[in-house]
Design a protein around this nucleic acid. Structure first.
Length: 968
RNA sequence: GCCGGGGUACCCGAGCCUGGUCAAGGGGGUGGGCUUAAGACCCACUGGCGUAGGCCGUCCUGGGUUCGAAUCCCAGCCCCGGCACCA
């Protein structure tokens, strides 16, 4: 593929390009099978090449790459491949708009997507668009430091030499297994464009989908009035049929019958049914007052005029159910109230109409529609509140309604059951049918009003197949899904999934192998392509020619079916090559992890599982899916029309790669939506620079060996951070992991350098670990630091730090906690006095209180908090002379002890309490410099103690008394 | 409507599963240190009250469980996302 360098990727961070180059030259991310080495195959969905990659892509990709890098450092042989999605109709749409000279599209390409002006004319070719963006985006992916094995790259559609072969093999095999079938399907259709009108192609009516209505045939004079309804079961409660006297009606020849509908409806039906014809117009007025016969019930109902009947809605014929439909009741009321001139001849008929109750609903009487209309004070059919009234009655009756005894064989059935049963009976007896219509107006981008067309001969993936679903559900239960909440979502999607129309007439893609007038639709040609990554390098390097890829080759490699000897003879691919392809597939498969944004849960990710389940052996089904949220920018949804779409390239140019990666990672995890904020990116940039400065400072200092409490503290904290980061990564909590690796480690470092004025040898251990922990998230900065620390090679290939629990030192940690608390107490006191301190005195508690502490720790702290009495009694036995102090001292100690983290064991607390004075003595000079005055540390019962305020009495174990002398 | 996710301080956001360490962390703001200055960096404060480490308040609303609730239970209100011919 030609990839002219239209514009370079620039980062303000000089070392980023350097390391990207060294990785490329070292080919360190190229992964081949290694016998005996555990593998890890991770991938992200390829992106559609109709524009520059933006921060939304960057988020998912960075999570994937961080995980890949983490696993690589853990010693796995990691495969992280890349490719590009070209399939779809959108790019073709762009080309068309450009050809028509749409100025908006030129503006978008030039101003938003920064396409060089001179190239825009070439965008009239859809393939060029994909090619252009693929070239641009490959540079971005490379610059981002994604650890990709580029030898396996491909793109989709039949423009690619072998991708289509793979898809055609997939579809032939799916069809053989019965997962592809032909059917018909209603779509929103533009009669002018002669194509389906997707949401993005609409001027009006986004989100509107075809609604299915039931036509109910009422016989009259040898033909049928076809009334449309959402509630066929209410035919039992029909009182009459309404026609609009001023609308145009026609008689339609309809499968051996003649039906009457509005002219508009007839036109709609022509798009939905085979071989129906409009016979002649009918004057509705001539039908008024006549009787017609309802299906199933056989009731004779009058035909009456009503202006509210809209000929543009469904069939333009309505049957009235005033008992259960608020609109019908309101209309009836109004007509009965003021019978106009033209209506006078029907006065008797109108007056005779009474609601017929057919459904009982808890909480309502016989006539819910009447009740609701009266309650809401609705007086006429134009009242807007009828919408709400209808919603209420429909919903109540659907969920809780029961058909009454006057409903024949449907009596006693729940409404929701009766509805489908009545509909089925109407259709099978030829007295009804299905008609689709749009619940509200939809206008195509071309300006024409859309209608519903039933697309014939459409190919479907039969996702509704219960056996198929069952296997998919079982796999979903088995696999790892992060976060866990997404699992239930997947299960729900499987439940609701219907058959999926998998072919299209237009756009780029792979022709359906058995009917080349169709193209495999975009979501349907991107399900099992991770399998292709395992062998694509053989085609890319020319070992296997695309035209050698017969069905038998794919059968052998992916299914283990067939004899390699024979396949080799037929194709000319050496047998050894076939066998290594097969081996390589089996080495990498199954996919160990696929990471994607949550918008793909209800479609791509679920399809991905379905197709693997359909085609491969059970051991090769996906092992894990990670789902994440969708990026917003400064709290707003990102979109081109809002102009807040941030291309990755722009973020890189401003903050550098690692800051971009970390800002995204730090913004959210789980299914929460990360919010990109400029301020956060600046801060992250500063933090990474500071980290490098810390490394430089440490490596340029004279470091002495030192073994003390604080050194042990530093290493202990570090070891614990290792565990937190590792555990977080294992469950794909990239935010927690990145945060701990960056800020967690930094907080420990800050405290350490504040306590220790001069750096020691231990900091090298600390920094070594810190660099490794950062490497998955900020790989460039980590490599730079790695080399500054004097290491050769790449930290990208270094070992992930092990958790070494033996280096945890709870006592050292608790000691520092004690010092921090003392410092906090001192600060608070000094602040309240609002004076400069001249001397501070600290009193540690006397030995008997320590003994009381040990008594307390002999009990379960929970019990003690509930019942302090047990400890008080016990303590009194030991110190009968402290009768006065003990009750309150015990309570205070218990309260204070409970403020320590519960992971600190009681042994550590006791040990710490016994060393308390020593701990303060060791930190004396630190405390003096922090507070800015001399310190004295006394024991409570020390002779000659200076304690003019009697503060030593208040001393408790692990909480000394304090007296601060201040300038008066 | 159906399904999924949420509501935490000035802002963003953790904690919730497994109740007590607790209202993390970052931004912004205020004050101080370092500095010729600026920037960077460091420290403190950032719900209220307080001349001694304290007291009171707070996690959408209202109830409940508990010695103890941001966390568990019940009811309600509100917000966001997906719902198929878009990728």
């Amino acid at each position: 593929m030609s990839k002219p360098d239209y514009s370079p990727i620039e980062s303000p961070v000089a070392y980023e390009a350097k390391w990207a180059r060294l990785w490329r030259e070292g080919r360190i991310f190229e992964a081949d099978p290694i016998k005996g080495k555990p593998k890890f195959f991770i991938c992200v969905p390829y992106s559609y090449q109709n524009g520059p990659l933006h921060l939304g892509h960057a988020f998912t990709f960075t999570r994937g790459d961080s995980y890949a890098r983490f696993k690589r450092m853990q010693g796995f042989n990691v495969l992280f491949p890349w490719s590009w999605h070209w399939t779809g109709e959108a790019v073709a749409g762009t080309s068309e708009r450009l050809k028509r000279g749409d100025p908006a599209i030129v503006r978008l390409l030039r101003d938003i997507d920064n396409v060089p002006e001179e190239l825009i004319p070439r965008f009239t070719d859809p393939a060029f668009i994909c090619k252009y963006y693929t070239g641009e985006n490959r540079k971005v992916v490379d610059a981002m430091g994604f650890s990709v094995d580029w030898r396996r790259e491909f793109y989709t559609t039949d423009l690619h030499p072998y991708y289509s072969k793979f898809i055609q093999w997939q579809y032939l095999r799916l069809r053989e297994k019965g997962f592809v079938s032909m059917g018909e399907h209603p779509v929103v259709w533009c009669p002018a464009c002669q194509s389906a009108t997707g949401d993005h192609d609409r001027l009006v009516g986004e989100g509107i989908v075809p609604e299915e209505y039931t036509l109910v045939f009422f016989e009259c004079d040898g033909f049928y009035l076809a009334a449309g309804t959402l509630r066929p079961e209410t035919v039992f409660g029909a009182t009459n049929v309404w026609l609009n006297p001023y609308a145009e009606y026609v008689l339609v020849e309809y499968y051996g019958k003649r039906i009457l509908v509005s002219r508009k409806a007839a036109e709609k039906l022509m798009e939905q049914k085979h071989g129906i014809n409009i016979l002649r117009p009918i004057n509705a007025k001539e039908l008024m007052g006549k009787k017609c016969k309802a299906p199933i019930t056989g009731s004779e109902l009058p035909i009456l005029p009503a202006g509210f009947v809209d000929p543009n809605v469904v069939s333009g014929v309505v049957f009235s159910v005033p008992a259960h439909a608020p609109y019908d009741y309101a209309a009836l009321l109004e007509l009965q109230r003021n019978i106009t001139e033209g209506m006078s001849m029907y006065a008797e008929l109108l007056k005779g109409l009474r609601p017929i109750s057919i459904i009982s609903v808890p909480g309502y009487g016989d006539f819910p529609a009447v009740e609701v209309v009266n309650r809401m004070g609705i007086s006429g059919q134009d009242d807007e509140r009828l919408e709400e009234a209808t919603r209420e009655v429909y919903s109540k009756e659907f969920h809780e309604g029961i058909m009454k005894n006057n409903c024949g064989e449907y009596s006693g059935l729940p409404v929701r059951v009766a509805r489908d049963a009545v509909k089925a009976r109407l259709i099978s007896s030829g007295l009804g049918d299905v008609m689709y219509d749009l619940p509200s107006k939809v206008v195509c981008r071309c300006g024409s009003e859309c209608l519903v067309k039933v697309v014939k001969d459409q190919w479907f993936l039969t996702y509704s197949d219960p056996e198929w679903k069952k296997k998919v559900r079982m796999q979903i239960m088995k696999m790892n899904i992060f976060p866990e909440e997404a699992r239930q979502w997947f299960l729900n999607v499987v439940d609701w999934l219907r058959d999926w129309a998998c072919t299209r007439k237009t756009g780029l893609g792979t022709p359906l192998p058995w009917d080349r007038s169709w193209i495999v639709e975009t979501l349907s040609d991107s399900t099992i392509y991770p399998a292709l990554y395992t062998i694509s390098k053989y085609m890319n390097d020319g070992t296997v020619k695309p035209d050698q890829l017969t069905l038998e080759v794919f059968d052998y490699v992916f299914l283990g079916v067939g004899d390699p000897e024979k396949v080799s003879k037929e194709t000319g691919i050496p047998k050894s090559v076939l066998e290594s392809m097969r081996d390589e597939f089996l080495y990498w498969y199954p996919v160990d992890c696929r990471i994607s944004a949550k918008e793909l849960v209800p479609n791509h990710l679920t399809f991905y599982i379905f197709h693997h389940v359909a085609l491969f052996d059970e051991g090769l089904w996906p092992r894990c899916i990670g789902v994440n949220g969708m990026v917003t920018v400064e709290g707003e949804k990102m979109s081109k029309s809002k102009g807040n779409m941030i291309p990755i390239k722009a973020a890189l140019a401003k903050y550098g790669v690692d800051a971009t990666r970390c800002t995204l990672l730090l913004a959210a995890e789980g299914m929460d939506d990360p919010d990109w904020r400029d301020k956060n990116a600046q801060e992250t940039r500063r933090m990474l620079d500071l980290f490098l400065k810390i490394v430089e400072e440490a490596t340029s200092s004279e470091l002495e060996a030192c073994e003390d409490r604080l050194e042990r503290w530093l290493i202990s904290k570090m070891v614990k951070r290792v565990k937190v980061v590792t555990d977080a990564m294992e469950s794909l909590k990239t935010r927690t992991a990145c945060h701990e690796a960056l800020y967690g480690m930094y907080n420990d470092w800050k405290w350490y350098v504040r306590r220790r004025k001069k750096l020691t040898r231990s900091v090298l251990t600390f920094l070594d670990t810190w660099v490794r922990l950062l490497a998955p998230f900020a790989p460039f900065t980590a490599e730079e630091a790695w080399s500054k620390l004097g290491n050769g090679g790449f930290v990208s290939l270094a070992r992930w730090p092990d958790y070494r629990p033996e280096e945890v030192d709870e006592l050292a940690e608790a000691s520092e906690e004690l010092i921090a608390r003392l410092l906090g107490d001192l600060r608070e006191i000094i602040e309240v006095t609002e004076r400069k301190p001249i001397r501070a005195h600290v009193y540690t508690s006397s030995a008997w209180k320590l003994k009381v502490l040990s008594i307390i720790l002999g009990f379960d702290l929970k019990d003690v908090m509930k019942e302090p009495g047990i400890v008080i009694k016990e303590s009194l036995k030991v110190f009968p002379d402290k009768r006065k102090e003990i009750p309150s001292i015990v309570k205070k100690i218990v309260e204070h002890i409970s403020s320590f983290p519960s992971e600190i064991s009681r042994n550590v607390l006791l040990e710490l309490a016994s060393q308390e004075k020593k701990v303060y003595d060791e930190a004396k000079s630190f405390l003096e410099s922090e507070i800015g005055c001399p310190f004295h540390i006394w024991a409570e019962d020390e002779p000659g103690i200076y304690d003019p305020m009697g503060k030593s009495r208040h001393a408790l174990p692990l909480r000394p008394g304090i007296f601060v002398e201040i300038n008066p």
